[in-house]
């Protein structure tokens, strides 16, 4: 344990959907500027974990962000502390333009954060070309970029990204990976929630594997690569 508290510390996190006990004591941490992946098959509890951290699912247990207890706070307060969340379902605002979607990511228009609309357009010229088009007409890949960029506009210190490559063409997956690199380069920590290993193994410093609502493995990409039995049991389909 270092003397400085981790950026995000989750201890013994439990969550329920009705009577089903979905998370059964999940513990992990993310340090400042670190890329950490949360892996596991469908139903392992990865998405519920980030939803519980964000306050969308009522959490039980201890969640500390920047040393503050955030379990039970409303989502907007958690977001304002600097925790970004990119949900799995690409919830863009379909009636608003690409530019307006990005602007809504800004929490406080008077403060200049790490990212500007111009940055996003430089990273994704596609978005610039469609800046004044309603978000609803973008392709799946463009919507994914827009959701990620929108969250970044709020200048988070840690961004939790749920399955960013789900259902995307290989070329677009490559773009997502480039954006993740850029996020890390600017010192923003990432909690990547994934089912597939490709990107996670390439960019993560550490990773956790979940199964049946618990963390079943903690290690580095190298140690996961070296453990085919573990991959077979908890990850491969």
């Amino acid at each position: 344990m270092s003397a400085r508290p981790s950026l995000l510390e989750v201890e013994e996190l439990h969550a329920f959907y009705g009577k089903s006990h979905i998370l059964q004591g999940v513990s992990f941490r993310v340090e400042e500027g670190e890329i950490v992946s949360l892996l596991g098959r469908n139903g392992a509890g990865r998405s519920t974990t980030v939803k519980a951290i964000m306050g969308e699912v009522p959490p039980q247990g201890r969640i500390r962000f920047k040393g503050r207890d955030i379990a039970g706070l409303p989502p907007h307060r958690i977001a304002r502390l600097g925790l970004g969340y990119v949900p799995e379902n690409r919830d863009i605002f379909p009636g608003l333009t690409v530019r307006q979607n990005l602007e809504l990511g800004i929490k406080d228009p008077r403060r200049q954060g790490r990212w500007t609309v111009a940055d996003m357009f430089k990273l994704f010229p596609n978005l610039e070309a469609r800046a004044d088009v309603p978000g609803g007409v973008l392709s799946g890949g463009e919507q994914q970029m827009l959701t990620m960029c929108r969250t970044l506009m709020g200048d988070p210190a840690l961004v939790m990204i749920d399955e960013p490559t789900e259902g995307l063409a290989p070329l677009v997956v490559e773009q997502v990976a480039r954006l993740l690199d850029e996020i890390a380069r600017r010192g923003v920590a990432i909690l990547l929630v994934e089912q597939k290993l490709t990107i996670a193994l390439r960019i993560s410093r550490r990773l956790y594997v979940m199964g049946h609502g618990r963390v079943v493995f903690e290690g580095t990409p190298a140690s996961l690569r070296a453990d085919p039995a573990l991959r077979r049991e908890w990850l491969e389909v």
């Binding site: 964000m54 969308e56 409303p74 989502p75 977001a79 605002f93 809504l104 929490k107 929108r150 709020g154």
Partner: peptide
Amino acid sequence: LIVQAALTHPHTVGNLGH
């Protein structure tokens, strides 16, 4: 804009810090 977005996607708007 925040109201417009919250009309259809209140959770997402909350997650963005509004």
